[in-house]
């Protein structure tokens, strides 16, 4: 692993952490529970960055929230949030991103494999989130599942369905090491010539 590669990957990991923080602010009002885009970006980090840098990205995001910067859902933050009833979902991003990155690494990006990895990652996320919710609030298992998992499943299915084409279209932008090698990238670069 060259140093240039690791520098590039850490910039991308920071980008994904920033996108995750932004995704926590953007809520799409579909259905009874608004869909927060946080875990879409966590899944994309797993797909596009791989297990190691995906973990780094989620780790930086959690560290920022832990330090009290307003990056969690609705602009919340702090240690209280991490050990509060919904903290399990935040910690659960770590195993989720790792397993998604691990399962899709090296495969030639087959649809079923990616979808399966994301389903497994989401299940891991809920395993952490719901069991922590149960421990903290003392709800019964059925009630904890009804409050902390069932309302979000439709949104998660939509997010998994969206993540695959998004990852497809972003992979060429990510994988070009030489700037002008890819016609797709040149088009993007031309269009955004004046952006900072």
């Amino acid at each position: 692993m060259t140093d240039s590669h690791s520098l590039r990957m850490s910039v991308f990991a920071a980008l994904f952490a920033a996108l995750t923080a932004m995704g926590a602010f953007i809520a799409v009002p579909i259905g009874p529970v608004p869909i927060v885009l946080q875990n879409l970006f966590v899944m994309l980090a797993g797909l596009l960055l791989g297990p190691r840098w995906g973990l780094a990205s989620v780790g930086i995001y959690l560290l920022a929230g832990f330090c009290g910067l307003p990056v969690f859902a609705g602009g919340q933050a702090g240690i209280g949030r991490l050990i509060g009833p919904t903290g399990g979902y935040l910690i659960g991003y770590l195993p989720a991103v790792y397993i998604i990155g691990r399962m899709t690494r090296g495969s030639d990006h087959r649809l079923l494999r990616e979808a399966g990895a994301m389903v497994l990652g989401t299940l891991l996320l809920y395993a952490c989130g719901v069991s922590w919710l149960k421990v903290v609030t003392g709800l019964s298992w059925t009630k904890a599942l009804a409050v902390g998992m069932l309302p979000f499943l439709i949104g998660d299915a939509l997010k998994i369905a969206a993540a695959i084409p998004i990852a497809r279209s972003l992979r060429p932008v990510m994988q070009t090491e030489v700037p002008a090698a890819d016609p797709m990238r040149m088009e993007t670069a031309g269009r955004t010539g004046s952006t900072p």
């Binding site: 140093d3 240039s4 520098l7 590039r8 910039v11 991308f12 920071a14 980008l15 996108l19 998004i166 279209s169 972003l170 932008v173 990510m174 070009t176 700037p179 990238r185 993007t188 670069a189 269009r191 955004t192 952006t195 900072p196």
Partner: peptide
């Protein structure tokens, strides 16, 4: 909305990493 936005932010990150490397970041 999403695809152009993400593409642009990715190429911005790309340029940022190139700029850091060009300035010998360690």
């Amino acid at each position: 909305l999403a695809i152009p936005f993400l593409r642009r932010s990715f190429s911005a990150a790309d340029r940022l990493s190139i700029a850091m490397e060009a300035r010998c970041y360690t």
